[in-house]
């Protein structure tokens, strides 16, 4: 199973906010085990989806070079169960950041109806934790899958530039597109 708890980004404004969506389906194993006989999306995984959205919002601020991890769930309020067939919309706002971490506020909604409110804190791993979380290529593939660079914008509305660490993979892509262009 892949630990990807959002389907894609729909909005992303650097340093400000990000919106992602997650479609909840009956094929997800997590729904079988959380509350037997009442398939619902586990609230902990809703937090994980918000953390993935917010973590990338924070990480983008550092050219995706910092290893950003969820450090603390400061607040989590769940307003209703989320069931198969529903689409969660996570809206995550970057509230504060410093060289050691960041704070985000987020809401989850379904068709405009509130489902949850969450406040998360992220920390940047320092040299005490030497392990790599992802390779640059893995991360780039994930961001492409999430369509981050399709929807991403800078704060003044320009397309989000693709950071330097992903350049080896972009060159490959632009060569392909050159072949297709006259």
């Amino acid at each position: 199973m892949r630990w990807l708890w959002i389907d894609r980004f729909v909005e992303f404004v650097s340093g400000k906010y990000a919106v992602s969506i997650k479609n909840v389906t009956t094929v997800e194993e997590a729904l079988d085990h959380y509350l037997p006989h009442f398939p619902m999306f586990p609230p902990s995984l809703l937090i994980e989806g918000i953390a993935q959205t917010g973590g990338l919002l924070v990480s983008e601020q550092h050219g995706f070079r910092e290893r950003v991890v969820l450090a603390k769930v400061a607040k989590a309020l769940f307003r209703r169960p989320v069931v198969p067939g529903e689409q969660l919309r996570y809206e995550v706002h970057l509230k504060d950041q410093n060289p050691h971490g960041a704070l985000v506020h987020a809401t989850a909604s379904i068709n405009g109806q509130p489902a949850a409110e969450v406040e998360l804190m992220f920390a940047h791993l320092d040299e005490r934790f030497p392990d790599e979380l992802f390779t640059a290529e893995e991360l780039y593939q994930l961001l492409v899958l999430y369509r981050l660079f399709e929807v991403g914008r800078t704060v003044d509305g320009r397309p989000l530039p693709i950071p330097e660490i992903f350049e080896p993979f972009i060159e490959h892509r632009s060569q392909d597109s050159n072949k297709r262009s006259p």
């Binding site: 603390k72 410093n98 050691h100 971490g101 804190m121 920390a123």
Partner: peptide
């Protein structure tokens, strides 16, 4: 990790910048 949270809250509450 709580100190990071405390710092964020104090920065917001007092409108100051607290370098770690």
């Amino acid at each position: 990790i709580d100190f990071l949270d405390i710092m964020f809250k104090l920065e917001q509450s007092f409108g100051i910048n607290i370098p770690r």
